[in-house]
């Protein structure tokens, strides 16, 4: 009898929804001060802050606290009247800490933030990240092919519909770049992921700018001055006749940057 009811009516239902939640970023390693500060906030606006769920962000602290220290922060927050429900930011150490504390790690939280910040910076603007080939090999050595974080996968590619003219730069931070136009001489397109150009590439294309060796470059009409993937680059003083004007792809095979015409 019981079995039949269970079959009709499940014990639980899992539903996903989006909620707004506060990110509590800790700047100072001081649980007592934290408790006072939060207690003041809760007292000032009990409707807003009383029993409000918060995500604790430890990224600003000079160093990641131990599990015991982190527990004192969580206790302080709880005592002051808010409810910590997880940790934000996803580094490996942070992940271990979250496990130890029995709390979820909300990496997605950061991804949302980053994308919002990116929208403004994604247009033609010099990337704050090193765009030059030289700096990149160093990054590649230190952190060989940083595994794409869930955030990087979640981010959609940046689409650029206008011609990229001489002197302009387009940078797709943490994602792929799609250009539906020409990249002129003296123009630069840069992406942390792959680059797709549905037009002529006469300027420079730098994929895997943060060291992703799996990034590739595709273009419809190859006339490039320079292509680079994860810091390995090639300059084309004379374009090889078998590549000039052809649709090509470029990728890294170990240390070697290979370029080949795309044959349909």
């Amino acid at each position: 009898m019981r079995a039949t009811i269970a079959a009709v009516e499940p014990i639980l239902e899992l539903k996903f929804g989006q909620v707004g939640i506060a990110n509590l970023r800790l700047n100072v390693n001081d649980a007592e001060a934290l408790r006072e500060e939060i207690a003041q906030k809760v007292a000032a606006a009990p409707q807003l802050f009383g029993r409000a769920p918060v995500i604790l962000d430890l990224s600003r602290l000079p160093q990641l606290p131990s599990a015991a220290e982190a527990q004192t922060f969580l206790d302080a927050i709880r005592e002051a009247g808010m409810l910590p429900v997880g940790l934000s930011y996803s580094t490996t150490e942070n992940e271990a800490l979250a496990k130890e504390l029995g709390l979820p790690l909300l990496a997605k939280f950061r991804a949302v933030y980053e994308r919002q910040n990116d929208e403004g910076a994604a247009d033609i603007a010099p990337p704050p990240a090193p765009s030059r080939p030289k700096v990149v090999p160093k990054a590649a050595e230190e952190a060989p092919v940083r595994a794409p974080t869930p955030a990087a996968i979640a981010a959609s590619s940046l689409r650029h519909g206008k011609a990229v003219r001489s002197g302009q730069q387009v940078y797709a931070r943490g994602r792929d770049l799609i250009v539906n136009a020409t990249v002129g001489n003296g123009a630069e397109v840069i992406a942390d992921g792959s680059i797709h150009i549905y037009g002529r590439l006469s300027g420079r294309a730098l994929a895997g700018a943060q060291g992703d060796a799996a990034a590739r470059i595709y273009c419809m009409d190859f006339q490039a001055e320079l292509v680079s993937i994860a810091g390995r680059y090639r300059v084309f003083e004379d374009l090889p006749p078998e590549l000039r004007g052809k649709p090509v792809q470029a990728w890294l095979d170990g240390e070697k940057l290979l370029i080949e015409a795309l044959v349909p």
Binding site: K134, Y233, E237
Partner: peptide
Amino acid sequence: ERRVVYDFVNVIHNECALKQ
């Protein structure tokens, strides 16, 4: 023009050696 990899500004900002 097709042999430019690094430029004056890179050198000034210490992003490469002058020789490069």
